[in-house]
């Protein structure tokens, strides 16, 4: 084997791995649109319908997201024949964020709903900012940083305004970067 052939072989194998494991942004898009929808539905029911259980969209839509995520994750795990360190790191990071969100849900009756949403925005920011820094994807870093700012801003707003802010936070941190990740993935495959 010639030395040039060795270099080409190493390069081609590394590219194979890179292509196989590039992330298509699926979870960002799924959760981005679900949270956006839940926040908008909550805003409409609260301000325009006057329905007392205006929060009803949250448990329904978040359960749908949870079921889809579990099914997709199990399917991926079953068909997965190789694992990158990066994938495992990302999995553990988002598992931690999800646990954080569940913990805050349990805190909600004690700390009050008005203090809850800013913490959710902060948690979105932590997951998104860290992901952006780890995979070196600027739109996620910007989205995460904006979430940090929006978390502070929302703490000084009414509940109704917090719903708009959470929709805005999810737009900049999940939906826009998610679509950009998807476009990038389509170009690379």
């Amino acid at each position: 084997m010639k030395t040039v052939e060795s270099i080409q072989l190493i390069e081609s194998m590394i590219l194979e791995v890179k292509r196989d494991f590039s992330y298509n942004g699926f979870h960002f898009l799924l959760w981005g649109w679900l949270v956006m929808l839940a926040a908008v539905v909550n805003y409409i029911l609260l301000n325009y319908v006057g329905y007392s259980n205006h929060w009803v969209g949250w448990p329904i839509l978040m359960s749908i997201g949870g079921i889809i995520t579990v099914v997709v994750t199990l399917r991926d795990k079953k068909s997965r024949r190789a694992q990158t360190i990066l994938n495992r790191v990302m999995g553990q990071l988002w598992l931690t964020v999800i646990i954080g969100i569940v913990v805050v849900l349990f805190l909600m009756p004690q700390i009050g709903i008005l203090n809850t949403y800013p913490i959710f925005v902060l948690l979105y920011g932590i997951g998104t900012f860290a992901t952006g820094r780890i995979i070196k994807f600027t739109p996620l870093i910007i989205g995460g940083a904006l979430c940090f700012v929006l978390a502070v801003v929302s703490a000084y707003q009414s509940f109704s305004n917090q719903l708009i802010i959470i929709a805005l936070a999810i737009l900049v941190s999940y939906i826009i970067p998610g679509h950009l990740l998807y476009n990038k993935y389509q170009k690379n495959v």
């Binding site: 084997m1 052939e5 060795s6 072989l9 190493i10 194998m13 590394i14 194979e16 791995v17 890179k18 024949r81 190789a82 694992q83 990158t84 360190i85 994938n87 495992r88």
Partner: peptide, 28 residues
């Protein structure tokens, strides 16, 4: 390592935490 298949296997594994035999077989 200066053998085509062994170098291919190591080059694949360098970017992975772990890989199944079938994955390596398909890629190489």
């Amino acid at each position: 390592l200066h053998s085509q298949l062994r170098l291919a296997v190591i080059s694949l594994l360098i970017g992975l935490e772990e890989a199944d035999f079938t994955f390596i077989k398909e890629k190489t």
